[in-house]
């Protein structure tokens, strides 16, 4: 199949970017979206052009490195799928595909489709952990955890930190990401001692990074490749409001 790609090109953080149109031919429906871009890049290099920079690593939907807004939807229209797991058979021959980076002030563009998501790491630094130095842990069976709690904690913990929630949120909010971690740790007995301070510190850090506030529009959960539920945001709000500031 043949496609017309409109790709955001931006040489560096200081550059004003632009949309550039490329034709790609002979795309196989079995290719992944990133493999299609590989083909484009291979040809750009041989033509002496600058290849399109994009982030990726595992290419199996788990590392959270990849991500672009495809035709107006973070990670493309297929639900619960990362960009690397999106396949070309979901596109029509001859289609025009618009590709843009995650857009949010706390995710500055580094180059083309590559953005800097270190704000997420700083949110975790603010309190997204349980303080337990290596070697100090009691026996794993000393604290039983209800299966339901463990399962819910797991569901929240599957967040891959890709940033699609921010990209899709009309407010540029990082609530789904932040709440997923607060919920994961807050559901487990091990996470209780730091539960209140964690919620406050992480929410505050999210604000300081310049993310917007959540107005419950639900776009985030709709594009989240791991289907993280809005329930985590409920939990975050609850923990935040009930914690001494």
């Amino acid at each position: 199949m043949n496609l017309t790609l409109k790709v955001w090109r931006q040489n560096g953080p200081a550059d004003t970017g632009r949309m550039v149109t490329y034709q790609v031919t002979d795309v196989s429906p079995d290719m992944s979206f990133l493999e299609m871009l590989d083909v484009l890049n291979e040809r750009l290099i041989l033509d002496g052009d600058d290849p399109v920079a994009f982030d990726h690593d595992c290419r199996e939907g788990i590392c959270g490195m990849c991500g672009m807004v495809i035709d107006g939807v973070a990670h493309g229209e297929q639900r619960a799928t990362t960009t690397c797991q999106l396949h070309m058979r979901h596109f029509e021959d001859g289609a025009t595909v618009t590709i843009e980076p995650w857009r949010a002030a706390p995710f500055p563009v580094i180059k083309d489709l590559v953005v800097d998501r270190s704000s997420f790491d700083r949110i975790i630094q603010a309190g997204g952990f349980i303080s337990v130095p290596a070697g100090s842990a009691p026996d794993a069976h000393s604290v039983p955890v209800k299966k339901d709690d463990a399962d819910d904690a797991f569901d929240a913990a599957t967040c891959i930190g890709c940033g699609a929630c921010v990209a899709a949120c009309p407010n540029g909010s990082a609530s789904l990401f932040t709440a997923a971690k607060i919920t994961h740790l807050g559901l487990l007995p091990q996470g209780q001692p730091e539960r209140a301070s964690r919620a406050v510190a992480m929410v505050d850090q999210m604000d300081l990074e310049g993310f917007g506030g959540c107005t419950n529009t639900g776009e985030c959960t709709a594009v989240c490749p791991k289907g993280i539920s809005l329930d985590v945001i409920t939990q975050m709000n609850r923990d935040y409001l009930r914690s001494p500031k």
Binding site: D71, G72, T98, R103, A104, E219, A222
Partner: peptide
């Protein structure tokens, strides 16, 4: 705050939550 958090708008954008009411 929201408009500061997204200073550059998307060229193309499609809602996935069907949130007409929200808008």
């Amino acid at each position: 705050r929201a408009s500061k958090a997204r200073p550059v708008k998307y060229a193309k954008r499609r809602s996935q939550a069907g949130g007409y009411v929200v808008r």
